[in-house]
Simulated scan of single mutants.
Amino acid sequence: MTGGAGGLAACLSDRGDLLAARAAGERLMALSKALDSDPAVLLTQEQGVEAFRHYPAGDVYDLTSHAQYYYHSHRDGEFGHIHLFQRPRGMARGLAPVTPPKEADAPCHLIGVGLGPWGEAVELFTTNRWVTGEAWYPAEAVKTMVAGLRLAPPGPWLAVSQWLAGLVAFYRPLIEVLIDERDRAVEAWRMTHPGRDVFNDERLEITSTRTIDPAADLAQLGG
């Protein structure tokens, strides 16, 4: 697993990137203020959270873009996290998984978002294939999906979806670094564990991670 140093600011290569990140960060702040409550409360509808259960029931699915996400927790008392995916019908032409998936509609995991005690975003992370049962796409394909993410399903989850899309837009440069680190972590594991199926090796779970603080990260950019 990679928990490397260097946050969003370290991923911006020029003034154009900086200005784009500032604008995305300011939009994210506006979307955060527009939420009636924190994302976890909204997605669980203030229910008691049962370990491994998806919230909301049936996940949030954008029928136009075929992006999908859900919130869950692995154990009682954990603050939980969001898993964000892209289904094949919403992918750009020419993107293909490393190996053919068992299910034609198997999604690609884009990023995980860890939440804190008040439902705030505190972490970004990537996972090994077995964690979500995804189809495994190479880093460049996943980055293309992140760049093209559209997430605005009409109905009760619109505000949370817009917030999540805004978070991804703001942290896109960092997410791209995490996706590259994911592939490097998997390859390093493969080299040091010969004879094992790296994508199904449960000893490798989180493949890259960074702590985040949207307000502080925007302030660091001068926004």
Rank of each mutant, 00 (worst) to 15 (best):
T192L: 04
E205P: 00
E202G: 03
R182D: 14
W189N: 02
R203P: 00
D183E: 15
Q220N: 11
L218Q: 10
T207I: 05
D217F: 11
R203C: 01
M191Q: 13
T209S: 15
W189F: 12
T207D: 06
Q220E: 14
E187C: 06
E181H: 06
V198C: 05
D201L: 03
P214F: 09
A219L: 12
A216R: 15
D201M: 04
R203V: 00
P214S: 05
A185D: 13
L204W: 08
D213K: 13
A188V: 04
S208A: 15
F199C: 05
H193M: 02
D213N: 15
D213S: 14
P194T: 01
N200S: 10
F199S: 08
M191T: 02
D201C: 02
E181M: 06
T211V: 13
V186P: 03
R184P: 02
P214C: 05
T211S: 15
R182S: 13
R182K: 14
T207Y: 03
H193K: 09
W189M: 04
W189I: 03
R210A: 07
M191E: 11
V198W: 11
T211N: 11
R196F: 04
E187H: 11
D213T: 12
R184L: 12
D183S: 12
L218H: 08
Q220G: 13
R182W: 00
L204G: 04
E205R: 14
R190G: 08
I206G: 03
A215F: 11
A219W: 01
V198I: 05
V186I: 15
H193Y: 02
